[in-house]
Computed example of a mutant assay.
Amino acid sequence: MKQQTIGFIGGGNMAHALIGGLVADGFSAQKIWVTDLDQNKLAELKEQFHVNTSADNQSTVAQCDIVVLAVKPQVLAGVAKDIAAAVQARKSLVVSIAAGVRAADLQRWLGEETAIVRCMPNTPALVKTGATALYANARAGKSQRESAESVMRAVGLTVWVDDENLLDAVTALSGSGPAYFFLFMEAMESAGRELGLDDRTARLLTQQTALGAAKIAMESAETPAELRRRVTSPGGTTEQAIRTFEEGGLRELARNAMLAAERRSVEMSNQFGAQ
């Protein structure tokens, strides 16, 4: 992939993170192009990473082997139709990180022969600890799949799904998931303050505990259930807290929340695809 050129259509936070990850991995900044309507964003990216910048989507696509669509899903149809001819002429691989826009709709806007990889990253990509699921259409070959994965791996873990519909489940789990953990951390901080801890102490202890638990889960071969049982002593304080969560219906609440997120993801795909 290091011999290829990459063009980012949109220079927002996720594009910024991906560019930073690629450059940190040794990808040449001179092989990266970014377009955006916001000249301040372009100036910042150019100053920080020394990438090429432009306000012209078509000219950027015309010289890029990989085109990353990093614009809001609400405007993606117009952007895709605008660059379709350039994509077809260059035979670029198109990597979309726009949530809720199906590959079939992208193919309809860009051209039926277009190789497309849809990605569902999440916000921890901004700190190089993202989780991204990828889906490739039938036009994307093995080398193109590898190229798309290399781009997303610059900001964290990657997994592939064979059924595009599973990206709605991914959205409900890892896409929206950081907010679930933030909410739980918020609740823990609040309870800590109610128990007498000052704001700073409650926040630091909550943050470090979340970080430590995630690190143990990532490095252990045990399941979360096994890890939970390991730190839950019979008759102890943790057992009392866990029992309260269980009696309060935490599992069912989490299930219902993710089902609601998945339904909304499907609804948004239908809305964006109607453009």
Rank of each mutant, 00 (worst) to 15 (best):
L250F: 15
Q207Y: 08
D105T: 14
T232D: 04
A98L: 01
F182S: 09
L195D: 04
M152G: 01
V94G: 01
S59P: 00
E189S: 10
R229I: 00
F181G: 03
G236R: 11
L250W: 10
T60F: 00
P124S: 09
V170H: 02
L197C: 11
A260R: 04
R251I: 09
Q107D: 10
N270K: 14
K215N: 10
N122L: 10
F8N: 02
N256G: 13
M258C: 08
L227E: 04
N13W: 06
K2V: 00
K31I: 01
F184W: 12
A86G: 05
A169S: 11
A17Y: 07
F182G: 08
V68Q: 01
Q4C: 06
R255Q: 09
L69Y: 00
Y135R: 02
Q63R: 15
E186D: 14
L18H: 01
A254L: 15
A202V: 08
F272I: 12
A15L: 05
V68E: 00
Q63S: 15
I242M: 06
T35M: 03
E219G: 05
L42R: 10
E246A: 09
V159Q: 11
D36P: 04
L134M: 15
Q144E: 15
E44L: 13
Q30V: 03
R251F: 13
I32P: 08
A86Y: 03
R193I: 15
T223G: 08
V61S: 06
A77P: 03
V23P: 11
M268W: 04
V67H: 02
E164Y: 06
A187L: 13
F272Q: 07
R263E: 13
A89L: 10
N52Y: 00
E252T: 12
M188T: 05
G111A: 13
R102D: 13
L42K: 12
L45K: 08
D105N: 15
T171Q: 00
A55I: 07
P121Q: 05
Q74Y: 06
Y180P: 06
A103Q: 05
P121Y: 02
G11I: 11
I66C: 03
L157H: 09
I19N: 02
Q271F: 11
P121T: 06
Y135T: 00
A84N: 09
Q271I: 14
G248A: 15
A213V: 07
N40H: 13
G273Q: 10
E194S: 15
L253I: 13
R193C: 13
A15G: 02
P178G: 08
R255N: 08
C64T: 12
V170I: 10
G156Q: 12
V127W: 09
I9Y: 00
T244W: 01
I216V: 14
I116Y: 03
E246S: 06
